[in-house]
Amino acid sequence: MGSNRRQFLRIAGITTLLGLGGGITLSASSYKPQSDPAQENEKRLRAGRWGMVIDMRKFPKDPEERQRVFDRIIEACHSTNNVPEGEAKPIQEVKWIWKDHFEHVFPGKENPFLAERVEQSEFLLLCNHCKNPPCVRVCPTQATYKREDGIVQMDFHRCIGCRYCMAGCPYGSRSFNFCDPGPYVKDKNPDFPVRMRGVVEKCLFCYQRLEEGKQPACVEASNGALIFGDLDDPDSHIRQVLRENYTVRRKVDLGTEPSVFYIV
C-alpha cells in the first residue's frame, strides 16, 4: 500500500508539473500588495459617487476646432497618466479616453436620419465607472474593484492579465498591455506609475489628482465642457446640470448604471 501511495503521488506530481509548467512557482514570492494611496489629507476631494457629464454643446461648433479640443483633452489625460501612444501594433493600443462617432458610442441608438450636428460630430469615450460594473464582477483576483466613492479602481500589482474584465466590459473601456508600455510613454510623469507588460488598465478618474484636491486632467483641460462631481450630493454642480438638462448614458439597458452622462 505504501508503494501504491508513493507511486500515486509521483504520478500526480508529474502530471501537475508537466501541466502547469513553471508558471506558479514564483507566484508567492513576487506578489506585493499595493498600499492604499487614499491617505488622509484635507485637500482631498471626496464624494459618495463620482460622476461626469460630457456637455457636447460646450465644444466648438467648427469640426476642426472641435477635434483640436478633443485632442487637447486626450493629451492632458494621457500625459498625466503615462498612457502609451503609438504602439507597434495598432490593434493592441492602450487608451483611456478617446473619440468616436455617434453610431459607435451609442450603438443601437443611431437612425438613418440623424441630425447632422450629431451625425458629423465625434464624442469622447472613457470608462463609465459603472455603479454595477461587470468588470469587477468577473475579475478573479479583485485586481479591479469598486472604491467607496464609486471609482472603479485597478491594482496593477495584483492583476494576473487574464483579460476576463475586457470580455466583461460592455463599453470597450479596457486596454491590455500586450507589450511593455515604457518605450511608448513620451515625457513620463514621475508622479504616476508606468504600468508593466501583461496587466489591464483603464481610466481611473484621476484618483491621484482628487487626492491633491485637483479635478481630473481631462476636466481641467475641457474649459467646462466636462463636468465632474458627486452624484450623491443633490446640491453639487453636476446634479444641478443633470436636473436642468436632458442627458443620456451608454447602453443603459444592460443594467450597468454608468456614471458618465452625455448632453447631446
Partner: peptide, 12 residues
Amino acid sequence: VVDLGQPQRMLN
C-alpha cells in the same frame, strides 16, 4: 496559463 499576461502571479 499560457494566456495569462502575468502567469507568475496566478496564485492570486
